[in-house]
Deep mutational scan, measured.
Amino acid sequence: DAPDEFRDPLMDTLMTDPVRLPSGTIMDRSIILRHLLNSPTDPFNRQTLTESMLEPVPELKEQIQAWMR
């Protein structure tokens, strides 16, 4: 099983494109984008959230890719 820090906190699946929300939570980009289609909010604190506020986490993405090899 993947380490917890590699798993999306909402869907508990392996992240492939991790992004940091303004709240500091790291999620998979595809999952948070799907959530934003229904509700333009951070799913953990209900603060306003837009796609432009998502910050890529390239170092975590590299760690996940290395773990998958």
Rank of each mutant, 00 (worst) to 15 (best):
I32Y: 02
T50N: 12
N45D: 09
N45W: 05
Q47V: 10
K61N: 06
R7E: 02
S30A: 14
E51S: 11
I26H: 03
P9G: 07
L10Q: 05
P56V: 07
I31P: 01
G24P: 01
S23I: 02
F6M: 07
L10W: 11
E5H: 15
W67R: 04
D8S: 03
E59D: 12
M15K: 02
R34T: 10
H35E: 07
F6T: 02
N38K: 14
P56Q: 08
I26N: 01
R46L: 14
P58H: 10
T25W: 15
L37S: 12
I31S: 12
P56W: 08
R34M: 13
M53D: 12
T13L: 08
I31V: 15
P40K: 14
K61Q: 11
V19S: 00
D42Q: 01
P3L: 05
S23N: 07
T13G: 06
E55A: 09
M11D: 10
L54S: 00
D4V: 15
F6G: 02
M11N: 11
P18N: 01
G24T: 02
L37D: 10
D1R: 14
D4I: 15
P9S: 07
A66P: 01
P22L: 05
E62P: 01
V57H: 07
L33K: 08
E51V: 14
R29G: 02
E62R: 14
R69A: 14
N45K: 06
T16A: 10
T41P: 03
D1C: 15
R7D: 03
F44Q: 03
L60N: 00
E5A: 13
I64V: 07
P56M: 07
E62T: 10
R69S: 13
T50L: 10
S30W: 13
T16C: 14
P58D: 09
R34L: 13
R34C: 13
F6S: 01
M11C: 15
T16I: 14
D28K: 01
L54C: 05
D4R: 15
V19K: 01
P58R: 09
Q47G: 10
D42S: 04
L10V: 09
P18L: 04
L21G: 00
V57K: 03
S30K: 13
M68K: 08
P56N: 09
R69I: 12
W67E: 02
P3F: 05
T13P: 02
W67C: 07
T48D: 12
R29Q: 04
Q63A: 15
F6Q: 02
T41I: 09
E59T: 11
V57N: 05
T48Y: 15
R20G: 01
P3C: 08
E55R: 12
I31Q: 06
L54W: 04
P40C: 10
S23Y: 04
V19P: 02
D12E: 09
D42Y: 04
S30T: 12
P9Y: 06
P9V: 04
H35A: 06
R46E: 12
P9H: 06
P22I: 04
V19N: 01
T13W: 08
D8C: 10
T48K: 13
R69W: 11
R20V: 06
R29K: 12
D4N: 14
E51A: 14
M27I: 07
D17C: 09
A2F: 15
P43M: 03
